[in-house]
Write a protein that binds this DNA or RNA. Structure first.
Lengths: 350, 350
DNA sequence: GCTAACAGGGAAAGCGTCTTCCGCACCGGC
DNA sequence: GCCGGTGCGGAAGACGCTTTCCCTGTTAGC
């Protein structure tokens, strides 16, 4: 292979097939115009022979539009995001679109920079799955950037938070957590602790609020000293549980972590601290990531069909704009598992 | 926002700044040529004012090269791949490159199609992390496609398998498994079962062979009926363990699954089948994905620094070609955890 | 004071593709 | 037999950007 060679161009194909550039172009992409079958075959043969692949960048320039979907996630190694990404990728491929991904590392400034950079690709769709924070000072700049993007024909879809006026795949974080609280009270739990993310992280906030409101329906609450705010990661959960143990949670019956990744970390910490999950302490999470079926005991959580969320983001983006208002939140369903056994001992107080 | 608007072009910026296209171009991308500071400032201001973002496709066409890394994985929701992807994305971003991803769904035909499609992007680098199979009939076509890609200046990097003559980030699957076997024998284990992937899946094969060879050093082996081949997924592991239980593995002391995802599935199945992992049956996996620290008992496994693997793939691709031969395999290290306690009972037989 | 060298702005020629427009050939209708 | 269509190939002009090349204005050297 002569390394200096250039990729064959449409021009080369046309020449090899003995037709004009226009005819070659028309034969190779399903254009409106018909092309003489004999020519078409000749062009296809020449293309195959030369190993021609259309230059997508050139096509994009010529057509003024691309076939790419840009996806922004917080951290691709986090199962929450990777499940969503899997959905986005599948749905995009079905629609003949290519996905480009970037990770914000949960940093709003980085997110803004990445949006700027990704805009340069002129993607058809920009999906923002990274977490939103309350009171970000980058918010106006982000909104401006996204506005500009939409005004030039792009489509923006957020996942989870309807903070900005763009299409959003709504996750019912508040409602799901509230249902979970009710279900846990029904099981007999009365004394809770909670592990949440940063206070400004909207997803964490909504879930915690929903949970507290669910408890409030039964005149229950979580004392402030039993709520720990921490990193939205496995290690954050581990640290938070350790902290709780130090603060003293002897009488606490159940720890609610606002996402599964944290819950799993907390589970390890609690066990190491002598509180056996599912026996001497109950534990619940949120998201229903795949692994929580396989921890011991299996984790009670709120199921979000994450891959569907990714799919729907793509579908929403590809649908005509008018559907915007009709978006219904993705249903969240409580899944009770071994980590929250029926609490018989306190049933009498009910 | 007038939705019909077009994104501002360099032309618009130049006009707004009252300079020529060439000057605008030179001001906005760090070109060799110097540009009068006054002009430069004016151009930058105009660009900011208009919200200009260079059209990457157009740049690619003009320059004849892109800033894209294409990454092909088996399944992005699998923690093995998503960890690698995280490394690829981080390293790429540090190098100013954008990552596009596609999922092969572990299908060789699909992989070939995707390579063809991704080639159209003219990426600088193409990373193939999907699993290789022995005797794929698509192999020659894939090789041809990749050859063509490299001959036009692209760089191909494989992860894990040195099946084809391209740069490869080598994982020492054989050696790691062999070490694991030795370590387990040292702990006192003598009777094994194994859960592997498809017989043609090279990674699975290497690991199983390494493990068996490690046992063979101590004149041990695994009877054929204690080896199950299954899907390379969590559910595959679960099903395989169920199958083993049915076949009867009462006297088996340890089950080796060739990857962690399968091991975790197997763990659940074994527990449900009455064999308590870490107590009445031991279990070991491979990869050291994040979650295996948090299952109970924590899983013994072979650690691969997955994110580093992703990073190295990018670095290898960006390094001059001459380094090709010097590639050393990524070290695999055995990590003993609670799922394989010391087997005191059989220590006497040693 | 004159020339040589250099800096740096701008015009214009690409890059690979699509698409409009032109024109030719062939067809059917009257 | 003539005329208006229609079908389809090809030339050429975009698309947005980079980069070469030209040319003018400045500076340095003698």
């Amino acid at each position: 292979m002569n390394a200096g060679a250039k990729a064959p161009t449409l021009h080369d194909v046309a020449r090899a097939a003995g037709v004009s550039l226009a005819t070659a172009s028309r034969s190779l992409n399903g254009s409106e115009r018909k092309v003489n079958e004999e020519y078409r075959v000749r062009v296809l043969a020449a293309a195959a022979e030369l190993g021609y692949t259309p230059n997508l960048s050139a096509q994009a320039v010529a057509k003024g539009t691309t076939m790419t979907v840009a996806l922004l996630v917080g951290d691709i190694a986090d199962p929450y995001f990777s499940s969503i990404a899997a959905g986005v990728i599948r749905a995009s491929e079905e629609a003949g679109l290519i996905v480009t991904m970037a990770a914000t590392e949960r940093d709003a400034t980085r997110e803004l920079d990445l949006v700027k950079a990704l805009r340069g690709q002129r993607p058809r769709v920009l999906i923002l799955a990274g977490s939103r924070f309350a009171g970000e000072e980058t918010q106006p700049a982000l909104a401006a950037e996204l506005d500009a993007f939409e005004s030039t024909g792009g489509r923006v879809v957020f996942i989870s938070q309807p903070e900005l006026p763009f299409d959003t795949v709504l996750l019912d974080n508040y409602g799901g957590a509230r249902q979970l609280a009710r279900a846990l009270v029904d099981l007999g739990y009365r004394r809770f602790a909670a592990i949440s993310g940063s206070e400004s992280l909207l997803t964490a906030r909504d879930r915690l609020t929903g949970f507290m409101d669910g408890l409030a329906e039964h005149a229950l609450s979580i004392p402030t000293e039993h709520i720990v705010h921490t990193e939205f990661t496995r290690d954050g959960g581990y640290d938070a549980a350790t902290e709780l143990l130090q603060r003293g949670i002897d009488e606490v019956e159940l720890v609610f972590a606002v996402n599964d990744v944290m819950a799993v970390g907390a589970m390890s910490a609690l066990r190491e601290g002598g509180r056996i999950p599912g026996e001497t302490i109950a534990l619940a999470g949120y998201d229903d990531i795949p692994t929580v079926r396989d921890v011991t005991p299996a984790l009670t959580t709120v199921r979000i069909p994450l891959e569907d969320v990714g799919r729907q983001a793509v579908e929403l983006a590809l649908a005509p704009k008018s559907d915007r208002e009709t978006a219904t939140p993705i249903a969240a369903t409580v899944v009770l598992r071994g980590s929250t056994p029926v609490l018989a001992t306190t049933a009498v107080t009910d």
